[in-house]
């Protein structure tokens, strides 16, 4: 039981995907100009990650290792296509905003990385916990990054005005360079915090 909890929580801080692995950065930088699109992409990634981790782990003894990558990609690409169709059918405005980034979830290294590094070796319940933890960690990072960029860049959060009306917005943060700056600062802060906590207590 504690193993499940461990695998789940490691994705939330200890191995939080975009900051610890620095994987799948392209969509991270691209969709975080608004909180709603970040959340939308994050939910898509959680779903795909769960499907791919569950299936890869369930059939891990039946997939010959020589063709494992094509099999993983087929599973991931199909799950992404389901997300794309569902989003177009039921969340059209989100589908329009995310556009090309939905099909590009297929090549998000995070998902293939989890299938390759974790799910193909571990039992199903652990793989599910890992997928859920990593997915939530990824989504949380996206939402935090998007919150900073949207509040500073446009003065809104989730489309609601949070800054005083007179605030004109800081355009740089809405643009790709702002995404890099923001991501760099967040990386620095997270490394600083873990450095401090590691020094204080016994290293985890």
């Amino acid at each position: 039981m504690s193993r499940i909890v461990d695998e789940f929580t490691k994705g939330l801080w200890k191995e939080i995907p975009p900051f610890r692995f620095v994987l799948g950065l392209c969509p991270v930088l691209a969709v975080t100009s608004s909180v709603s699109s970040a959340l939308g992409l994050g939910c898509g990634v959680i779903f795909v990650l769960m499907v791919s981790n569950t299936l890869v782990s369930t059939f891990r003894h039946h997939i010959p290792s020589k063709i494992r990558v094509p099999v993983f990609i087929v599973i991931i690409a199909s799950a992404v296509t389901i997300v794309e169709l569902m989003m177009e059918a039921y969340f059209y405005s989100l589908y329009e905003v995310l556009g090309i980034w939905i099909p590009l979830i297929v090549v998000n290294c995070l998902i293939l990385g989890r299938a390759e590094a974790f799910a193909r070796k571990e039992a199903v319940h652990l793989a599910v916990a890992d997928g859920l933890g990593m997915g939530i960690g990824f989504t949380t990072s996206l939402v935090v990054l998007a919150s900073i960029r949207e509040v500073i860049g446009a003065g809104t959060w989730f489309g609601l005005q949070v800054m005083p009306k007179a605030y004109l917005g800081f355009e740089l943060f809405q643009r790709p360079p702002g995404a890099f700056i923001c991501l760099g600062l967040m990386l620095a802060v997270i490394n600083f915090i873990s450095l401090k906590t590691e020094k204080k207590g016994a290293a985890c």
């Binding site: 997939i63 094509p70 099999v71 087929v74 199909s78 389901i82 569902m86 177009e88 039921y90």
Partner: peptide, 26 residues
């Protein structure tokens, strides 16, 4: 290897066409 890949792609292809049919009208 051929068998596994064929089965995987076959099952997913079928599933995807079901999803496509289900969401088409919407």
């Amino acid at each position: 290897m051929v068998l596994v890949l064929t089965i995987v792609t076959g099952i997913w292809g079928g599933l995807l066409s079901l999803v496509k049919i289900a969401t088409e009208d919407q």
